[in-house]
Each structure stands twice: as structure tokens, then as C-alpha cells.
Amino acid sequence: MEIQESKIKSFVTKYNSEKKALISILQDIQEEYNYLPQDALRIVSETTGIPLIDIVGVATFYRAFSLEPRGRHLVTVCLGTACHVRGGLKILEEFEKKLNIKAGETTEDGKFSLQTVACLGCCAIGPVVVIDDKYHAQTTIRKVVPILKKYMTKRERK
């Protein structure tokens, strides 16, 4: 995807180029491109005057930001204590097998990214799988394929 310099600059000027707004700026970029492109961070550094290394430090500190391109759909499998004892790990393995990627990776066609999380705070409905802000409660291994099919086009389902 092309990085438009004017677009990044508009994100920065939205917050009056203030240094304290760094996280908000990064959030806007993440929302636009689904990840933080290197060139975009360089432009942010030039326009705000924050050293590039400090921006990278913030971007790598928070799990919400990604320096690698993410897939269109983000699959998050909960491995917190409650989900873990109810088989969260097996569900993760099933996702890994079906998507043919490891946790933290993205499929080759750029459709799905898979990641784990320690706890989402909704242990009562565990094991939980979250795909693009939609919570799938009481997941089992058998539910993995039907859930994934919802996010595929008709042709891919075959």
C-alpha cells in the first residue's frame, strides 16, 4: 500500500503536532493502514520532532500497534487461566492448523492474522475467540471452521 505523506501529516496536524499526542497519532495510522509502516513513522518523526527511536520504542511497547502488516481479519485466541483450563490451547492449535500459520503470523493471502492474549476479562464465556471486535463465546474445536467460514468469501469456502 502506498504511503501518502499528506495523509500522515494531516494525522499529525490534527493534534497540533504535539509530542504528547504520539499515541493518538499512531492509533490513527494503525487504523488507516492496519499496521505502522516504517515510512509513516519517519514522517511522524520529521513533523513532530520526536526522535525516531522514541517513536519505535512506543510502537513496539504496546501490543495494539504492529510494525508488520496485519491481515484483514485479526483472530485473537484467549489463553488466560480460565480459557486455558477449558482448552484454549487446543483451540489455538486448531486455528494454527486450519490457517496454516503460527500465533503472531499472517496468512500469505493477507486475510487472517493470528495472535494470543492473556485475558480478556470475560472468563465466564470462555474459551473466548475474538475476531475483529466480535466475541465468539464457548468456542470448541468443532466451531473453529464454521467461525472462520463467516469471514471467507463464497469461493474460498470451498
Binding site: I53, D54, V56
Partner: peptide, 9 residues
């Protein structure tokens, strides 16, 4: 310089 810094956590 500011060439290096802490990353990740």
C-alpha cells in the same frame, strides 16, 4: 545521537 533505544517490553 539518539540512534539506539529500548524496544518491546
Amino acid at each position: 545521537g539518539r540512534a539506539i533505544g529500548f524496544q518491546n517490553r
